[in-house]
Amino acid sequence: MTTQPGPGGSRLDPNLSVIMGERRRLINLAYRLLGSLAEAEDAVQETYARWYAMSRQQQDAIASPGAWLSTVAGRLCLNVLSSARARRETYVGEWIPEPLPEPTEWTGGRPDGITADPADRVTLDESVTMAFLVVLDSMTPAERVAFVLHDVFRYSFAEVAEIVGRTPAACRRLASSARRRVRAAQAPATPAARQARIVRDFKRAWEAGDIDALVGLLDPGVTAISDGGGLVGAVLHPIEGAEQVVRSLAHLEGRLRDLTILERTVNGRPGLIAQHDGVTVSVYAFEVAGERITHIWAVRNPDKLRPWTVGPQHSETQAARGARAMEDDLN
């Protein structure tokens, strides 16, 4: 990209391709750290804003722009996590990480046909399953950042220490503590095909009002959690036990007549969505162990359903556009 002519004529930023090439990795990192795509996008946008707030001389003095961006994004996410605990105290009901669809579902949603930039999409793997994100959310901010950076993104503990503001040895202990939490909460792996079959059977039994079938598909100690954020109706506390969960599902039977339940991939795992007049109003994520469902997460907060409702609003993130605008202003 050629910047606006300045006193020295048109100039090409030699770092621009490197800087913009980091976007997808930063979005992936920030989403895993925060569990919120909206907050991840804000953190990445602020990261770019700080880069372009520097003079060209300051930018040129940075040996590795990618490492600089990662450090800044990591610190911003750590700050967000630290303040999030206070904000969660005023959140209405239970807080569930923001669910994500398959990358192919991130298209459309606008009459002009604009699709999502691939750099806006989060890579779906084991580190973004709903069960995994829920465990991450139970950690302290420092534990979460140290674990995600080291175990998921393979940063060295020296690099993690620079971001977290602790010694490498302390970061090693943080990651080890987080690793124990993950192992304690990890359910035995269930083949994806079996998970899809069980979720499909759950959908059919729910639509048919087949109480016995539903009870048979749920683990006796199943937990169901709903997140409405105070914006839409949702159960405010976790529901535990198969019979209690089925009773809650039965209460929704009348509402089901106005909804279309569809099978979709949610954070890389088989899940369901509920649509009303073609608009997604609920997203359901599941954890399956063996032949039964052990956890159900129902996200109804409309602020967390952006990728499911109208799709991305731009072909570029605000971070990318803001970065280019600031690039022009500085030249």
Rank of each mutant, 00 (worst) to 15 (best):
S10N: 08
N15H: 14
S17T: 14
V18C: 08
I19V: 15
G21I: 07
N28C: 13
R32Y: 07
L33A: 02
A38N: 12
A49H: 08
A49L: 04
R50H: 05
M54H: 02
S55C: 07
Q57R: 14
Q59S: 07
S64D: 15
P65W: 03
G66C: 00
A67W: 07
L69Y: 01
V80Q: 09
S83P: 00
S83A: 10
A86M: 11
E94P: 03
E94D: 10
W95Y: 11
E105P: 00
D112C: 05
I114F: 02
A116Q: 04
A119F: 00
D125P: 01
E126Q: 12
V128H: 06
M130F: 11
F132V: 13
L133D: 02
V134N: 12
V134L: 15
D137N: 15
M139P: 00
F147D: 01
D151N: 13
E159V: 06
E162V: 07
E162C: 02
P168H: 10
S176V: 05
S177K: 14
R180L: 11
A185L: 04
A187L: 14
P191C: 03
A193I: 09
A196P: 00
E207R: 09
A208R: 13
I211H: 15
I211R: 15
V222Q: 05
V222N: 04
I225W: 01
G230P: 08
V232I: 05
G233K: 12
L236N: 09
L236W: 00
G241N: 04
G241D: 03
R247F: 07
S248C: 07
S248R: 12
L249E: 10
L249K: 08
A250V: 12
A250Q: 14
L252A: 14
R255T: 10
L256R: 15
L259I: 11
G268R: 05
G268W: 00
G271D: 06
I273W: 01
T280E: 01
S282R: 13
V283K: 07
F286W: 03
E287G: 06
R292F: 04
R292W: 01
R292Q: 15
T294Y: 00
T294R: 10
W297R: 14
A298G: 09
V299T: 14
P302C: 11
T309Q: 14
V310Q: 11
P312L: 08
Q313R: 15
S315F: 09
E316I: 03
Q318C: 07
A319R: 09
R321L: 15
A325P: 00
M326E: 07
D328T: 13
L330K: 08
